[in-house]
Design a binder for these strands. Structure first.
Length: 614
RNA sequence: GCGUCUGUAGCUCAAUUGGACAGAGCGUCAGCCUCCGGAGCUGAAGGUUGUGGGUUCGAUCCCCGCCAGACGCACCA
């Protein structure tokens, strides 16, 4: 183990490796011992810095009391430089305590690693495709889109930080039957002025109205269908309209993305794959995976897995036994994956197969990560299964569907379209900025107008983003203005505030003690509050790695919140500028600087700004 | 009917994925500004982790059965 370290791995990984060696050496005849040594940060300070509970697990295999096993591992020599002691505690825990100097050096190394962000380069140049945001052309982005956007962008950042080559792809909804409906409506009742002024809401109005008419007027519906067919056959006029709609919509999306600081490496909408769709279906049929059914071409997922077939057969029996023919009929729908519709058109299944295939062929990715709401879980399960069986995706490519919970209204019900649907994303961001501005003005009355507004924007957006990432993606969010825009407690601004306070303190430090070079000092870790901070900093690389492994930015949000909390406790109790002893003062200033660096970096991965003042 | 997800403090969520005494925020109550930024800090109250079994040295976490809610189930994505 190396104290001042090149950051090739995380501290916990190095300690685990050390213990693994010792377990293996102590019990060479036991295969289970060879894989022991898992290490996690200790539950409480009294239990050292890291703990290992594997001795208890091995007790059965080794037929020895857990404490005896732990003792043997703990007493092995020599103790590496970084460790002060290894103790056996409780029923058989191994508690590892770091030497303060080693902890301080390690914390500084993590914070100072500007190039790699203190994070091991486990990606090693492999490729990850991250598919997120994916709004629909001719529809406004609303609060339902923000989770995919924000979570996906954070995951892309994290994979990049870990040394992966990332392809961030915005798979926008720019193809499908809705365009016939819009084109028909556009021809009949478009308000050209409104379209010029603010195109997307007008397109949305056109779609809604045309769609409503199609529902009650069969002739209208047929006309819409014909427009779709014309578009898909390449009719120049319809294609020009369609491209116009895309251009207008993308312009509106880009305004939001600019504001959110979201970037993509590529934007390939569904239409991009359109030329490949016929070939996909042909190959599925040729391979025997797809067949004709009720006029459509379908893949029956049950054909790929006898267990599913059996499960399905039982479900039908159970329904029939109760005379529930409706449920029995529904059963098919769960397993039928339509790849060509009765009318010869293709749908999202076909497009998604083509997308999968293209991504594998073009990028050779180690992972494909797709971020959508949880209603699409069955769709992606089927897509992944069939893609693998057909060989569209090779076994080396990991497929991940990051499913997040839908956003409901304040009462836990879906937002009803009749009552205006989900709040628009732009409205949300405006409201966030405006609430933040009120506070900025109050706290910084002397700040020039433009600066205050810019700052409020960063704070408001930070609040919105944080609230969407602070919890596990699968959690359903009950929308509430007060929760999304919270500026106190577990919130984005709380983290930003902790960071701004440190920056301010460090500026004052530099001005007050120009001779002291805190940069050269080791972070102070003598007080438990300081030590807690250093331990937290050292765990940063583990947090980032965990985000990638679980595809949950919430892990990083949680980590940063803990770091900020620890800092606030430290700040309250231990003086820095007012500390009499120059050496301690420098050590504390250095520790503060390390915290600020990690906060800024972590917030950066979440896509949240870290202003120097607020 | 079948499937997926979820159930943890009054409310919103954590719990390093099987480890030591289940922790935060909001709200409530009591404190902290002659003190580096109070968007802050300290403390109190608040829990049979939906429920009943099982596995384990050890279960919020894994398995089985119930209960409740959300979502999905043939040409939207």
């Amino acid at each position: 183990m190396n104290d001042n370290t090149t950051m090739q791995s995380t501290l916990s990984a190095e300690l685990a490796a050390l213990l693994r060696e010792r377990f293996a050496a102590a019990f060479p005849d036991c295969p289970e011992a060879a894989s022991a040594g898992r290490v996690v940060p200790s539950a409480r300070p009294g239990f050292g810095d890291y703990q290992c509970s594997d001795a208890m697990q091995l007790s059965r295999a080794l037929r020895l009391p857990p404490r005896a096993i732990a003792e043997k591992v703990a007493s092995a020599l020599p103790l590496p430089d970084a460790l002060e002691k290894i103790e056996v505690a409780g029923p058989g825990y191994l508690n590892l305590t770091l030497r303060p100097a080693a902890l301080a050096a390690r914390a500084a190394a993590v914070a100072d690693d500007e190039e790699r962000g203190g994070v091991p380069q486990s990606g090693d140049g492999r490729t990850v495709v991250v598919d997120y945001s994916s709004p629909n052309v001719a529809k406004s982005m609303h609060i339902g889109h923000i989770r995919s956007t924000v979570i996906g962008a954070a995951l892309a950042n994290v994979f990049r930080a870990l040394g992966y080559r990332v392809i961030a792809d915005n798979h926008i909804g720019d193809w499908g039957t809705q365009f016939g409906i819009i084109i028909k409506g556009y021809r009949e009742f478009a308000d050209m002025e409104a379209l010029a002024r603010d195109p997307v809401p007008e397109l949305e109005r056109i779609y809604k109205e045309s769609n409503a008419r199609a529902r009650e007027d069969a002739a209208w519906m047929e006309a819409c269908r014909l427009e779709t067919v014309k578009l898909q056959q390449g009719d120049p006029e319809n294609r020009a309209l369609w491209q116009d709609f895309i251009r207008m919509s993308r312009h509106t999306f880009d305004e939001i993305y600019d504001r959110l600081g979201i970037v993509f490496d590529t934007t390939r909408g569904e239409s991009w794959y359109q030329p490949q769709l016929a070939g996909v279906v042909d190959r599925l049929v040729a391979a025997g995976f797809a067949h004709e059914s009720r006029g459509a071409v379908v893949v029956d997922v049950r054909d790929l897995d006898p267990a599913l077939a059996e499960q399905s057969r039982k479900a039908v029996e159970a329904a029939r036994a109760k005379g529930d023919e409706e449920s029995a009929a529904r059963e098919d729908g769960k397993w039928i994956c339509i790849v060509r519709k009765e009318d010869g058109g293709y749908n999202y299944n076909t497009t998604d197969f083509a997308t999968m295939e293209t991504r594998v062929r073009e990028y050779g990715p180690a992972k494909i990560v797709i971020v959508t709401d949880d209603r699409q879980i069955p769709h992606f399960q089927q897509l992944f299964l069939v893609s693998r069986r057909l060989g569209i995706v090779n076994p080396e490519t990991e497929l991940v569907h990051v499913a997040f919970g839908t956003i409901t209204d304040e009462n836990g019900h879906p937002f009803s379209t009749r009552k205006g649907g989900m709040p628009k994303l732009k409205e949300l961001l405006d409201e966030a900025a405006s609430r933040a501005l009120a506070i900025v003005r109050e706290k910084n009355p002397d700040l020039p107008q433009a600066e205050a507004a810019a700052l409020a924007e960063r704070i408001g957006i930070g609040a919105v983003k944080y609230s969407d990432m602070a919890m596990d993606p699968i959690t359903t969010i009950r929308f509430s203005w007060d929760a999304v825009l919270a500026l106190q407690g577990n919130s984005g601004p709380y983290l930003q505030y902790a960071h701004a306070r440190i920056r301010s303190l460090l500026a004052k430090y530099a001005a007050t003690f120009p001779g002291e070079a805190a940069v050269d000092a080791a972070p102070s870790v003598s007080d438990p509050l300081e030590r807690a901070l250093a331990r937290r900093i050292v765990a940063y690389p583990d947090a980032v790695a965990a985000v990638a492994a679980k595809c949950k930015p919430s892990i990083l949000a949680e980590y940063l919140y803990g770091l900020a909390q620890d800092y606030s406790a430290f700040y309250q109790k231990l003086p820095v500028l007012k500390c009499e002893d120059a050496a301690t003062r420098a050590g504390r200033a250095r520790l503060c600087a390390c915290v600020a660096a990690v906060l800024r970096r972590g917030l950066g991965l979440l896509g949240i700004a870290a202003p120097d003042r607020m």
